[in-house]
Amino acid sequence: MNKPSLLLDVKDLRVFFYNDNKEELHAVDGVTFQVYCGETVALVGESGCGKSVTSLALLRLIDSNGRITGGEITFAGINLLHLSKKQMQGIRGKDISMIFQEPSTALNPVFTIGDQIMETIILHQHVNQKEARDIAEGMLKIAGIPDPGKRLLEYPHELSGGMKQRAMIAMALSCRPKLLIADEPTTSLDVTIQAQILELIRDLQQKLNMAVILITHDLGIVADMANRIIVMYAGKIVEEGNRQDIFKDPSHPYTIGLLRSIPRLDIHQEKLSSIPGMVPDPVHFPSGCRFRNRCPLADPLCQQEPSSALISDHHFVYCHHWKRKAELQAESFTNE
């Protein structure tokens, strides 16, 4: 098999935040993963697991109350953390683009759609107004927006949620990035519109041959879209593997619990199993394995940080007890 080339290599990334009490929040703590050209990698987890912070760190867009305290982000051979602010701006929107959850807040209400798309194009592509306009119109068309010439002149509020997200995608892809980061791109959309947008992303990914990092909490979308899946919990990766690995052979107790706690359309579940307790407060993450206070398999060994265990090719799990996963019966994850 011809192995695709490495596009993004994140090594031991750490992002810490500081709250008003000067406490350190280890939002992302030692995250390592790779993205290859043309593939879709899903970062999955619940709120507070660090998936969004990871994606913002890739673009170095961390708020002023946090900073990247360690690690390397190598994109196409360049360590992004060594770039100047100006060089970084040249990467953003051109080589790496991002689309967000709330298209209505990500678009500036006082400029037309056309202005906003053209701004990015002119910034990165050294073209004149007229050419930029043509590119923008072409992008809207590719993004499935009917009557793109007219839409260019419209303001964000004149578009529906789904259309806004399409416009956002058109803007993000206008410079043909090599990597698209989609942060919960369909969470605020209805299910029929969600299906449209996911189809669009999939379609454009093939046409433009770009890699996609899909950040979502919805495992249904992941099963549909991703080649590889990274499951995060409390700022750390707990499991990483191909789609079949994660869904057919989940090995971390958290992944197993998460998959069993979802109401499913396709099968009958008498009762959902659920993971007891809640995600720990980022100020007081447990030492060692961060899932241990909710884990049915936890024992004193879990106070030590688990290292990665290779289950099969490309399938890693960060758990001391993954071999005991068969013990995790449905009853292990019942309500308190």
Partner: peptide, 22 residues
Amino acid sequence: LISAVPVPDPDYHINRILLLGD
């Protein structure tokens, strides 16, 4: 509507009916 719901099983295949427009 049913066909548009993503299901967390990579082997689940339904005839997805994409509704057009908003």
